[in-house]
Design a protein around this nucleic acid. Structure first.
Lengths: 206, 206
DNA sequence: TGGCGTGTTGGCCTAAGGTCCAATAGACAA
DNA sequence: TTGTCTATTGGACCTTAGGCCAACACGCCA
């Protein structure tokens, strides 16, 4: 899993704490990139696998808002919150939104390491899932509308003649569409097609 | 969704607060059953759909432990925690373990109602998922070992002759097994079989 | 207006799946 | 020991699927 370097992004306005965090994280064997504000972090290029260690209280944007912005951007970096003056509702909101952990300052090295490992594992699997989904989507997008329609019937397990009846054409036509669907999506069986369709949330026709 | 009465189980040692909670919850339109200790709750029969409103600090067992016990028991009741003197690590642990919410006392009626609705919705879908899984499992369990083996190959999309080669027998034999698999699992297509197998976490052979 | 992509259809042939009937062999329990 | 369950195999026959070749209609763009 560690084929690529794992990066911990740090967003923390206190310069001395930020630097000591960065030292600590590097000593734990991770790459580390630090930001002093939410905006500078949000504009930065990020690399996977990684996670973000995010202070809740930042000078420009609230940490919980940053978390939402990341999600909206489609960024898959898992968030670990840090806070000096947090409260329970804040931590609960963060966790509901999918934060990996919410660490009150000061926190122990073990807790941090544990959270980072969890976050990076999650990121690795999220990224892989997203990539698979993208690849599957690219295949599906090569289909014509009619072929997509036939696809949704194939994955219900219907026979060609039944599909023909459903969409008002002949069995021969369905055979051709079916054949094209298999070619274009590069599968060789209905079973593979079912799994491909599930990956991109295509559900069986009526 | 409200075809059956929705029950909120309350576990709270403070008698007066327990009673006022029960009144409030009934006024919100839910059934309510209250307990003054974790043990009495854990021994009770529970009905779905529902959820449990659980005090973190109880005389006999800690609320967070109760949550783990419920999970281990296979109980699907979602947990909403209440606490008078909680802290952030406590709320974070609870949320990591799947709690729906973690309400510091005193909490508002709206927050409570919102948490209960979320919890019950989750319970309804969890219960439905579990039922579907049970039904699918029951079908799969009618298969002989050999038939299960053939099943794992069918859902990879392999042809009968390929399966025969894999498990060292003839195409004819696989045809018979395949036919029995379809009969016993009551599906009529590979597509349905793939979905059935996924529900019970059977993954394709090598 | 001609080419291209899409959707449609036909015939023909081979391969594969599905069903019915029949039969054998080993394991395990009544 | 007999009977049942499981796994195995064969033959015959029909249905489906898939590939190859050919063709036509329609809309859109250059």
């Amino acid at each position: 899993m560690s084929s690529q370097s794992e990066t911990v992004y740090i967003v923390e306005d206190d310069a001395s704490f930020r630097k000591s965090l960065q030292r600590l994280i590097r000593s734990l064997g991770f790459e580390s990139v630090a930001f002093e504000s939410a905006n500078s972090f949000l504009q930065a290029d990020i690399c996977y696998p990684g996670c973000v260690l995010l202070d809740v209280k930042l000078p420009d944007i609230d940490g919980l808002i940053v978390q939402k912005l990341l999600t909206e951007k489609g960024c898959l970096l898992p968030v670990i919150f840090m806070t000096g003056h947090g409260d329970i509702p804040m931590s609960v909101s963060a966790m509901k939104e999918g934060a990996v952990d919410f660490l009150p300052k000061p926190f122990g090295e073990e807790d941090l390491l544990c959270a980072i490992n969890t976050a990076i594992d999650r990121n690795i699997s999220d990224v892989q899932l997203q990539n698979e989904k993208k690849e599957s989507n690219a295949l599906i997008e090569t289909l014509t509308p009619r072929e997509k329609e036939v696809l949704t019937w194939i994955i219900t397990g219907k026979l060609n003649k039944q599909i023909a009846c459903e969409i008002g054409t002949t069995e021969k036509t369905i055979k051709v569409h079916r054949s094209r669907v298999f070619q274009k999506t590069r599968v060789s069986s209905v079973a593979e097609l079912v799994r491909l369709a599930e990956k991109v949330n295509i559900s069986p026709a009526s």
